[in-house]
Amino acid sequence: MIPASFEYVRAESLDEALALLVEHGDEVKLLAGGHSLLPLMKLRLATPSVLVDIGRIDELKYVRDEGDVVAIGALTTHHDLARNALLSRHVPVLAHVAGQVGDPQVRHRGTIGGSIAHGDAASDLPAVVLALGGTYVVAGPKGRREIPASEFHLGFLETALEPDEALTEIRVGKWGEGGWGFEKLTKRAQDWAIVGVVAVRREVPDGAGAGAVAAGSGIGVALVNMASVPVRAASTETALADGASIADAAALADADCDPAADVNASVEYRRHLARVLVRRALEQASR
């Protein structure tokens, strides 16, 4: 399969990429690792007129310690995240899940920023950032702004990015203390999750309650492929904050989402999987 014809241009810096986005308007797409975009183009589900290749912009490849936060450059590959010592120490769930995306070949090319900006609810990494209460830094002609992960994904393959903006950085609070769990069910090892679950738990002071979750502590549970966007299992989180058992809280895992049926799973099967996988992920996070 061959993509529809397009014009290609390589940006050597973020500023150049942003200028090219403005120059080429609505018909342009940024190309990072290409492992979400190129398959869509080969199927002619996406037919951009211009591709701006940002894959060589080294200034967007990093993992930095910024005090309470780990900052990740958008063009860092899944492979590099999975093997990054700083990330493994401070946000181990993100390093682990990056190592579970696709397969080794995909992880060598695919980038965290590409995965998140693509906005597929079946992707693993957006759910991790959501569960951690992270934020996304985007840059555009009007400057730089931060978007909370909970406000970034708007619908199927739709994000809060403006057409002239690029995702540049992912920021997550250090979460080395406490536990985490990740579960996904796939038919083949390399497949997208039919349903995936990320659970993170940090010890919180007595009385901090569910409100502490958004501030980066407490318990966060996020679901992969249970709606058109990655979603928090809010009822489960609230139940846990109110002292419910894992089993009782997990029974509410699908209460706040609206999954779709597809060739892999019916709606009811997805709901069942969410409840089972949330229980397992919470059990892992509690160890």
Binding site: Y8, L31, G34, H35, L38, D53, Q105, H108, R109
Partner: peptide
């Protein structure tokens, strides 16, 4: 890498 999902230009 899977060379069916990399452009020659890349």
């Amino acid at each position: 890498v899977k060379s069916c999902t990399v452009l020659a230009a890349q």
